[in-house]
């Protein structure tokens, strides 16, 4: 019964995300979210591992495996903390557990990339590479949309605010990089050029 309900939740997150993520934000099944997240990270990471093995990139495959699993898992925790803080600054009211649960489930589309990714081992053509790139882009947008819905449902904020919460960390990083580049150039360039 529990398994059936779990499978139904997975289906709903993929195909009826508004209802599913709203329900998850209320019920907050953290254990299920951790299982889903681990599956969504480990299976694509293994797919990438085999692809890189077949291409002869032994060092890169280990790096990918570690960053895709442990790195992403840590990022999930840290990301939730940061997004929770930003959402509250923007006036949202919700729990970080709700955010962890919904963003955990939001990684599910990554699984769908695996058959295409693994397909590149057996079919080597520019069409296949293009298809993988297209599928990756679709999955990236899909995951991003699920994250926006998750923020909207957990903090009961508008679409615009949810998007703003999600892009604020990236904007801060870009702003810091620009400042870093300007300061580095100021330090390196001779005075007469400034």
């Amino acid at each position: 019964m529990v398994v059936e309900s779990f499978i139904e939740t997975i289906y709903d997150v993929l195909f009826k995300p508004m209802t599913a993520l709203s329900k998850l934000a209320e019920e907050r099944p953290l254990g299920q979210a951790v299982v889903v997240l681990l599956i969504s990270l480990i299976i694509p990471a293994l797919g990438a591992y085999f692809v890189f093995s077949s291409a002869g990139f032994e060092k890169l495959r280990n790096f990918i495996l570690i960053t895709q699993t442990i790195g992403y898992f840590l990022l999930w925790f840290l990301g939730a903390a940061i997004l929770h803080l930003i959402a509250e600054i923007y006036g949202g009211k919700g729990t970080v557990i709700g955010l962890l649960v919904t963003t955990g489930f939001a990684n599910l589309p990554h699984l769908l990339a695996v058959p295409f990714l693994v397909g590149t081992i057996f079919i080597q053509s520019s069409v296949m590479n293009g298809l993988v790139a297209l599928v990756s882009l679709v999955i990236f947008c899909w995951t991003l949309t699920l994250n926006v819905i998750a923020l909207k449902e957990v903090y009961k904020i508008s679409w615009a605010k949810a998007v703003l919460v999600l892009i604020t960390p990236s904007m801060v990083i870009i702003a810091l990089l620009i400042v870093f580049v300007i300061l580095s150039l100021a330090a390196v360039l001779p005075e007469r050029l400034l």
Partner: peptide, 28 residues
């Protein structure tokens, strides 16, 4: 249930084929 199990089956089968390919040391 059928849709999700079918999707998971496809993913796991492709992964298993890739794993066996990798274990045999075959190269792209």
């Amino acid at each position: 249930k059928v849709v999700i199990i079918a999707i998971l089956a496809i993913i796991l089968i492709t992964l298993a084929v890739a794993a066996s390919w990798s274990v045999q040391g075959k190269h792209r």
